[in-house]
Write a protein that binds this DNA or RNA. Structure first.
Lengths: 153, 153
DNA sequence: TAATCATGGTTTCATATGTAACCATTTGCA
DNA sequence: TGCAAATGGTTACATATGAAACCATGATTA
């Protein structure tokens, strides 16, 4: 047996272990995207996700934002605090339920959104262009299948 | 145009955005694996990765571990501190270069490794079983292609 | 061989994140 | 009604993480 190997113990080959590969690829691409706007706009990943959701669905509550971003409510609460303070998100209280907030992007929020969204799309394109068209299609199909089907509620 | 939508702004559809999907899928599966050993063995993800690498490559230095785990050296240093303190990793100084450490699993380390590795593999299997065999093959091929080709050094 | 630079590794500090406890309001139901 | 349980959201605390400064050792070169 080769020196330094331990076949009796069947060690994991990290670089062929799918969960590990997913983690590396995911972190690499997310980081690349974040680098684009982090410094430029002082915007964290969580904040950007909240903005992206509010761009599509105006008037959501914090809880609904949490659902759609797959973030927990604490993370959303913190992101919102920063976004509101920065004047990027408007928040007022729901008319008939004073616990709920009603959220939406401000003009400043839209401005940032309209700068960041194309950059994000561009990064996605760059990632996909490393794959053959056939592979791109399979990847999309596979990810759709593996995404948690939002089993709650 | 439908109420609450803003087509002029071309908002990102997060749930079809590949980097976002990758992040969700990756976190979900990693968390599931971590849950298996976190509580049972008081072992963090970073620590487990270090152990997995040392199981395959005995005698690495901390820097080499960092390379193979795609973690930065601070994270590795901290993980090693805990692992050595817990008696799971043995560390001594390189004979001819006193900066380097020479690392390896202890018997206790191997014991944990041999419990955790099969669980991790099982989780990977469960993930893959949600895909058709054809899709599994494509996913492996695609991830191999997307993995950063270790461009440093 | 002394001065400088590079390398392996740890410590420090500031920030991010998760869990649990917590308020305020609303709902369910006796 | 009136009180317990549930819900939306925030706060507090403890832990994790990353960047930069740091220390010790080794390599390089004048």
């Amino acid at each position: 047996m080769p020196a330094g190997r331990h076949p009796d113990h069947a060690p994991l080959e990290l670089e062929r272990f799918v969960p590990y590969q997913l983690s590396i690829v995911s972190n690499t691409v997310s980081q690349a995207i974040a680098d684009d706007y982090q410094a430029r706009h002082d915007l964290g990943v969580t904040e950007w996700r909240v903005m992206a959701v509010l761009a599509r669905f105006d008037g959501l509550s914090a809880r609904e934002v949490a659902e759609r971003t797959a973030m927990d409510k604490v993370a959303v609460s913190r992101a919102l605090a920063r976004l509101v303070a920065a004047g990027r998100v408007r928040r007022h209280t729901h008319a008939s339920d004073k616990r709920r907030s009603v959220l939406g992007l401000t003009a400043a929020g839209w401005k940032i959104h309209d700068e960041v969204a194309p950059m994000a799309r561009q990064r996605e394109r760059e990632l996909m262009e490393r794959l053959a068209p056939e592979e791109q299609a399979w990847l999309r199909r596979i990810l759709d299948k593996l995404m948690p089907q939002d089993g709650h509620e």
